[in-house]
Amino acid sequence: MAHDHHGDEMTEPPSEMALRVQALESLLVEKGLVDPKALDVIVDRYENRVGPRNGAHVVARAWTDPDYLERLRADATAAIAELDYTGRQGEHMVVVENGPKLHNLVVCTLCSCYPWPVLGLPPAWYKSSPYRSRAVIDPRGVLAEFGTMLDEDVEVKVWDSTSEVRFLVLPERPEGTEGWTIEQLIPLVSRNSMIGVEKARPATGAAA
């Protein structure tokens, strides 16, 4: 599947509501009535408040239900919709699975395509130009900055999100979680582990 192009198509405007907010925000910023950086700070504070728990639910279900995992591999969009997580920018989901010898990392090199129905609002660093450029050139360096050290023989694959395809990383299930329920597993699945900059949280120290 081609995942390295954004195509030459023009940008589709967002929903009417999003456009009205954008109109309001840009006018108020222009008049100096609100500071765009201050708005970013408030929105970033809530970036965890939209949906990473939706994605964590998908991951925990896949860890515990082999049939669901199969459906997720075959058609991630449909399998995610089974859990009622749908919406704009989540229409064409592809799940990439980590394994003992494979680590996946998601970026959007050209803009900030992001599957927010499952992951919420993109964090500021995901939208930043250094992450977007360096994730492709030096993925191990980027991972190291997030404290993620991989063995030499682990392959790192970088997936470039586009307007057509949004990727969700399925992190490896942490050791020592055999027999855990979905509810116990969900807190182990961080947003960053589903972007691929970190691994899922270890079983130790988690609120089981």
Binding site: A18, D35, A38, Y46
Partner: peptide, 26 residues
Amino acid sequence: DDGPVFREPWEASAFAITLELHAAGH
């Protein structure tokens, strides 16, 4: 329990604009 939740990014933006205009005394 932790505070406001949003369904879509524009909702968080509208929320943020409101907080800022209020904080600036408008």
